[in-house]
């Protein structure tokens, strides 16, 4: 029954062209990250060539090529920014639509007139969101591999494995937002309020928490390369205890480790960064199951 609900939901998303929109946006975003990575590569090489000529004309020795200091997968470092910005918003909308249409169309009432348990229903909905996100991220992985092949002409097996791990982590991170999208629909009466509440949660997770726990200004979150902020104040001595729960920071740090674009740390430390994200997914899934058990599907939500 879970599979039936999930396949129905996937079909519904395909018919509404939500699936296509998600796929197109994420693929464009991945291609854009590749183009920016290629542009970054070309710029560094050309700046280095010009710098060597300039320094030679003044009799100074040429510095080492800074591009050699950049890891291969840094070409895709913009993805670590786009997933929490664009991907998370798309996941919110995916989760939102998974439940809200059953409310506004009255499908929920019809579904529960059949022999379907609420647990099967909610697990089917969660499974459909997970499957859709997995498919679009798998497609993004292929685009990322193509970008690397275009620029570097080759890709090591280890790098391919790292990319796979990065997209698996991204899937986990996006599940947080798909579930938030579902929870807000189940907790509010109007579909617009549900959407705005989910947006509020996204803003807090993406911009507010990193400022509270690490002093990162909102626009610093937009750049894949940021200088660390000073956190020596008493304020941060208190709030930094919450840093493990700032999932966007943990996601970015763990991604940096997987793609080897951040200062190296042990595997154990990286796993510790992923655990809060997995924990949040689990908690949100349980909350969603609980809310569906109590939800009154006989009352249609306001379509506005």
């Amino acid at each position: 029954m879970i599979a039936t609900i999930a396949s129905h939901q996937v079909l519904s998303l395909r018919r509404q062209r939500v699936f296509l929109a998600l796929l197109a946006t994420l693929l464009t975003m991945t291609a854009l990250a590749g183009v920016l990575g290629w542009s970054s590569h070309q710029t560094i090489v050309r700046v280095y060539d010009e710098a060597v000529k300039l320094l030679a004309s003044t009799g100074k020795p040429a510095p080492p090529n800074p591009f050699l200091l950049k890891p291969t997968l840094s070409l895709l470092s913009n993805m670590v920014v786009y997933i929490p910005l664009i991907g998370a918003l798309l996941a919110l909308i995916l989760g939102h639509l998974s439940i809200v249409d059953d409310e506004t169309n009255g499908t929920g009432r019809l579904v529960f007139s059949r022999q379907i348990t609420r647990t099967s229903y909610v697990l089917g909905k969660i499974a459909s969101a997970a499957a859709v996100l997995a498919v679009v991220l798998a497609a993004s992985l292929l685009v990322s591999v193509a970008s690397l092949l275009v620029v570097n002409h080759t890709i090591a097996v280890g790098d391919f494995g790292r990319l796979g791990l990065f997209y698996a982590l991204s899937w986990l991170y996006l599940m947080v937002f798909a579930l938030i999208g579902m929870v807000t629909v189940l907790m509010t009466r109007r579909r617009s309020i549900a959407l705005l509440s989910a947006m509020g949660a996204w803003l807090v997770i993406t911009f507010v928490l990193p400022q509270f726990t690490s002093g990162l200004r909102p626009t610093q979150s937009l750049n894949p390369i940021t200088d660390p902020a000073s956190t020596s104040q008493t304020f941060f001595k208190v709030t930094s205890k919450l840093r493990p729960y700032s999932v966007v920071e943990q996601y970015k740090q763990a991604s940096g480790q997987i793609l080897q674009t951040a200062t190296a740390e042990s595997v154990g430390q990286t796993i510790q960064r992923i655990l809060p994200i997995a924990g949040l997914v689990l908690v949100l899934a349980l909350v969603t199951v609980r809310l569906v058990q109590r939800h009154d599907f006989s009352r249609s939500a306001n379509s506005e």
């Binding site: 920016l36 970054s40 710029t43 560094i44 700046v47 280095y48 200091l69 950049k70 913009n78 390369i225």
Partner: peptide
Amino acid sequence: TMDADNQIPGGLFKALG
């Protein structure tokens, strides 16, 4: 991201001296 100086942590031009 396209800013040439933003390509390397600490600044590309600084890294090149």
